[in-house]
Design a protein around this nucleic acid. Structure first.
Length: 1016
RNA sequence: GGGCGAUUAGCUCAGUUGGCUAGAGCGUUCGGAUCACACCCGAAAGGUCAGGGGUUCGAGUCCCUUAUCGCCCACCA
């Protein structure tokens, strides 16, 4: 007897398989290994937290692909690593430090705090790695990377330097989400929208009188505005943030507004400040309409105060109309003249303006409103409930705050343009194009850049194809990418800067610009007027970007008083280089040549724009090839209510919990089965009362399947051991002789070959559900339910045992191979057992099995021929057996009692039944009597039609069951017959439908009518 | 506001270029300790394919429309 336990115990098997894989370095690949290259880079998980179920899915799929291609003979590699995830990681550490030590980031020196984050990263990197290993991920761990380790830092420096040198990185302005309480910039996703009760203030802005020469504009019938002696004296603006009016640099009106023409060229004298600002025309302004559904139109006056430095939309308007941008706030949210407010405003400023300085923004709001009221310029105040961005950390309202930032010019044709050109022709919708046409390869693109002839054009494909649109739309509407972040955790921007008087900078830096430094430095200058901050006039800020590995130059710059930029790069800058940096670019390594481009990127849809886009642009730019040719976008896992899984909702599931409750293979199988073409899958979450941990009953199917696989192999091993005993230890196994195979043997081999083809097809098209389902149905439905049952008598018969053992061993061997990528642990260990019991197990010409010591490196099965006759005949037996079982159940036959069955059948079917008497008798618990074509119905027999035969089960007498059965069947038949007759009576059907379908309907109708006639 | 998607059995989901009586697993009901497996075996019940229109000989599948839900992007004077 085998020593395999009756129930599969994952905990006893998984570590053993993992140990062997690791010890024998079976995940490792070298560029010199044989096979065509196949590489996958892991989407590096953030080191912010342990992996969740979404990662488990993502990584299971990558492992399936890697193991599949490795077995198929490719030189396959899966490159693992983690992402430093700038903002997210710094934030979790800040939270923890605040909670545990009561300290803020600013209470530490920069280095000191970065060390704390580093400690966190180390801890989570280990945990993540352990999780991936527990899941069975066959990553090449010798090549594990981290987006901020030395080789990756070098890649970032090199990429930044090259882009900087080419002018693709520049200094620009941007409104950041500023938290005045913690005095940090926040990412968009760190801003929480909260509904607040605020007010709409309607402020009157007087028109500047001296510009109003000539005829007086008449304002008639206007709701807002200034009717005094039929002359327009002021305009009214509506705002929720009156204090920002101090920074207004224009008032805008929609050009379609009837008042626009009258006001063209007029100016406003801004109250309190006395600044004279223009009235401009812009489509963005909403026309007032009290009856509109749009709340904006209800509240609007038609006049929009434009404050470019303190509102994102106003900023855009400011850019369009080249308006000055005046920042009136200090970083702490108080009104300040020190951060970009031109001194001219204060030259003859009144006391009223001076008094506002130093006030907090909310005090200033009250004071400004008060001032307008006092001066009869406050027209109205209305209550208004609206959502306002708040800091998720300090919970104070966010202030849009203008600042200088570094930008990457992704709008350049060499970046976004190239990404579009890379798209597969079938997936690129040129008709829909928003005006962008990818530049063809032989054209100069207008950037002075002659594109190379490419073999990557049109080679990037998305699965499912609908995601190509997301990619395309993003690049057609792309805006330059702000790459600097006001953080401590990340790649420090490799730029040093110093401000010089405009006339002296060149002399001061002459020696740096000599040949010695030429290739190690790239320089850009920004004049004082380009900055959004007010700098001394006639100054020039010089920015020097230093190429990697030039510490001497950096030191020289610092000696000259240059300072390194305090900001770090956006996380996506380093992850955008991932398919290159994991292979140690910019080093020209054999690995880089071998595995870049990688093959497939496997990711979730939320980062198509953030990540996929950047990798494509960067890889094309730096290496003139694609980072990968196929992008597979898998579903997102939600909880049972369709919500995202998250810590705060408490509905997250830890893969390790599932591994301990169900096993890694069970988890992997279930996730694979769930990976259909849809966008989302729901995973009902339950709390396990015993462990107190979240789990899901969905994983039972995987656990059950693994147990089935375990027991099928256990059964086979027991039988094969038995067979070996009969053959004698020295005897060679019986030669394969197909002529001695049973129908069941031929059928299962054929079914297996069909399954291989289905698996190949499914995996090639990323239809993981079809792969899992195909394996499941074959293994459980065909192999276990039918074949293993069918061969039991043969396996006990020494005369027939040999051939059946050959088939059984080969089919099981092949099944383990097919299943391995999905459920690697259990299949690996069972394969070893099979090797012990039966080292040779091929079926020449049918199933090739070159045994290998380790399944992970065994050959992927090659689909052989299917046997149509076996696949046509065996199902007839299945139907007949099913019909007999059904009768037994309906008539409540004693389960142990053998009933006598006779069958009316003819021709080939009759022959098949005759030669498979044993099978029918065993599986239907019956004694098979006469099988002839001219059978008259025996007395006291229950009757059924199946497999084209009439079946009589004797001794089943139950009149009520009989009546019920007949009535039910008769109803079905009458209904079907009516529908078919109806179809055939329709002349259009007969004339227009394909003839084979008409014929089919006719045949079927005849069959059903015959059955109905016999029912009486 | 723009885009993508979903709605099929009590639950979670398949359903190919439109074509057999719309399938699976779980759950339910009935029967079963049979020597691979009770994480099992055998059988059964259960569906107006979200609603409404259209195209077609024929629609779960294609088109229009309504409703509900989800995600991404943009925005909120």
């Amino acid at each position: 007897m085998t020593d395999l336990p009756k129930t599969y115990d994952p905990a006893a098997v998984e570590p053993e398989a993992n140990r062997v894989w690791t010890d024998e370095k079976l995940f490792h690949a070298e560029p010199t290994d044989p096979g065509k290259p196949y590489a996958i880079v892991i989407p590096p998980p953030n080191v912010t937290a342990a992996l969740h179920l979404g990662h488990a899915l993502n990584n299971t799929l990558q492992d399936i692909l890697t193991r599949w291609r490795r077995m198929a003979g490719d030189n396959a590699i899966w490159l693992p690593g983690t992402d430093h995830a700038g903002i997210a990681t710094q934030t979790v550490v800040e939270k923890r430090v605040l909670a545990e030590e009561g300290k803020r980031r600013t209470d530490f020196a920069r280095d000191e705090f970065v060390k704390k984050i580093q400690t966190w990263k180390d801890e989570y990197e280990v945990r993540i790695t352990e999780q991936l290993k527990a899941m069975g991920c066959s990553c090449d761990w010798d090549r594990q990377a981290f987006t901020m380790d030395e080789p990756r830092a070098k890649a970032v420096r090199e990429a930044f330097f090259q882009l900087f040198k080419e002018g693709l990185i520049y200094r620009g302005k941007r409104l950041v989400n500023w938290d005045p309480a913690t005095q940090t910039a926040l990412a968009d996703d760190e801003v929480e929208m909260e509904e607040v009760d605020g007010h709409f203030y309607y402020l009157k802005y007087p028109l500047e009188s001296e510009s109003g020469t000539g005829d007086s504009p008449v304002a008639s019938g206007q709701r807002h505005g200034q009717v005094a002696h039929a002359t327009m004296e002021y305009v009214t603006v509506a705002t929720t943030r009156p204090e920002t009016m101090l920074g207004d640099t224009a008032v805008a009106i929609n050009p379609k507004d009837p008042r626009a023409a009258q006001l063209r060229g007029k100016k406003i004298r801004l109250p309190i400040v006395n600044r004279v600002i223009p009235i401009i025309e812009d489509d963005y302004v909403v026309l007032p309409d009290p009856k509109s559904d749009d709340p904006k139109a209800q509240f609007a006056t038609g006049f929009l105060k434009v404050t470019p430095a303190h509102d994102p939309n106003d900023y855009e308007i400011g850019l369009r109309h080249k308006l000055p941008m005046i920042n009136v706030l200090a970083p702490d949210g108080t009104i300040s003249d020190q951060h970009g407010w031109p001194t001219e405003d204060f030259d003859q400023a009144g006391e009223d303006l001076q008094n506002l300085l130093g006030l907090d923004r909310f005090e200033a709001r009250r004071a400004v409103v008060e001032w307008f009221k006092r001066n009869n310029l406050l027209e109205e105040v209305k209550p208004y409930r609206h959502s306002v961005g708040h800091s998720y950390r300090s919970h104070v309202p966010i202030e849009p705050y203008l600042s200088d930032q570094w930008y990457c010019k992704v709008t350049d044709a060499r970046l976004a343009g190239a990404a579009l050109r890379a798209m597969s022709r079938e997936q690129f919708e040129s008709s829909r194009s928003t005006g962008f046409q990818p530049v063809s390869s032989d054209q100069n693109n207008g950037h002075g850049f002659q594109t190379h002839a490419t073999d990557w054009e049109g080679q990037l494909k998305f699965f499912p194809p609908r995601y190509a649109k997301t990619f395309q739309t993003w690049h057609e509407n792309i805006r330059d990418w702000c790459i600097s972040r006001q953080l401590w955790w990340g790649h420090r921007i490799p730029v040093w800067s110093k401000m010089f008087p405009a006339s002296t900078w060149h002399d001061a830096l002459k020696h740096l610009l000599t040949r010695k430094y030429k290739n190690r430095l790239a320089t850009t200058m920004v004049t004082s007027s380009d900055s959004c901050f007010v700098l001394p006039r006639d100054t020039m800020t010089v920015y020097m970007c230093v190429a990697p590995g030039n510490e001497d130059v950096e030191q020289e710059l610092e000696r000259l008083g240059f300072e390194q930029d305090p900001d770090v790069l956006d996380t996506w800058f380093s992850s955008g280089l991932w398919p290159m940096s994991t292979l140690n670019w910019p080093e020209q390594t054999p690995e880089l040549e071998k595995w870049n481009p990688t093959h497939t990127l496997c990711t979730a849809r939320e980062i198509i724009t953030l990540w996929v886009s950047r990798m494509v642009m960067f890889n094309l730019y730096f290496l003139n090839r694609l980072p990968f040719s196929e992008v597979f976008v898998h579903a997102m896992i939600q909880d049972g209510e369709g919500r995202k899984m998250s810590k705060s909702l408490g509905n997250g599931v830890d893969p390790l919990d599932i591994i301990s409750s169900h096993g890694a293979d069970a988890m992997r199988f279930t996730l694979t089965l769930m990976t259909t073409n849809t966008q989302d899958v729901r995973m009902p979450v339950e709390r396990d009362p015993k462990s107190g941990k979240n789990t899901s009953p969905k994983f039972d199917i995987g656990r059950n399947f693994c147990n089935k696989v375990w027991n099928a192999v256990r059964f086979a091993i027991m039988n094969l051991e038995e067979a070996r005993r009969h053959e004698g230890t020295e005897a060679r196994r019986e030669e394969v002789d197909e002529t001695r195979w049973s129908l069941a043997d031929r059928w299962i081999v054929s079914r297996f070959n069909r399954t291989i083809a289905a698996c190949d097809e499914a995996l090639t098209n990323y239809r993981f559900d079809q792969y899992a389902k195909g394996c499941y149905d074959f293994f459980w439905g065909d192999l276990c339910d039918w074949y293993l049952e069918a061969i039991k008598p043969a396996m006990r018969d020494p005369a027939r045992q040999g051939q059946t053992a050959n088939v059984l061993a080969a089919v099981l061997d092949g099944s383990l191979r097919l299943l391995h990528p999905m459920i690697p642990f259990i299949t690996e260990v069972l394969y070893w057992r099979l090797n012990e019991v039966r080292p040779e197990r091929g079926l020449p010409g049918r199933i090739m099995c070159c045994t290998s010591p380790r399944l992970i490196r065994a050959a992927w099965p090659r689909a052989g021929e299917v046997t149509e006759t076996a696949e046509a005949l065996f199902p007839k037996l299945q139907e007949i057996i099913g019909a007999i079982r059904n009768l037994r159940n309906d008539y409540k036959a004693d389960p142990k009692k053998r009933v006598t069955v006779s069958i009316s059948a003819s021709g080939e079917t009759a022959g098949t039944i005759e030669s498979n008497r044993e099978l029918i008798e065993l599986l239907a618990t019956c004694t098979l009597g006469r099988v002839t074509s001219d059978l008259s119905a025996p007395a006291n027999a229950a009757r059924a039609t199946a497999g084209g035969c009439e079946i009589f089960v004797e001794g089943l007498v139950d009149e009520s069951a009989d009546r019920e059965r007949s009535a039910r069947r008769r109803d079905e038949l009458v209904k079907s017959i009516a529908s078919m007759k109806g179809r055939l009576a329709n002349p259009s059907y007969v004339s227009k439908a394909p003839p084979h379908l008409v014929k089919q309907t006719q045949d079927q109708l005849a069959e059903l009518e015959a059955e109905l006639a016999k029912l009486g």
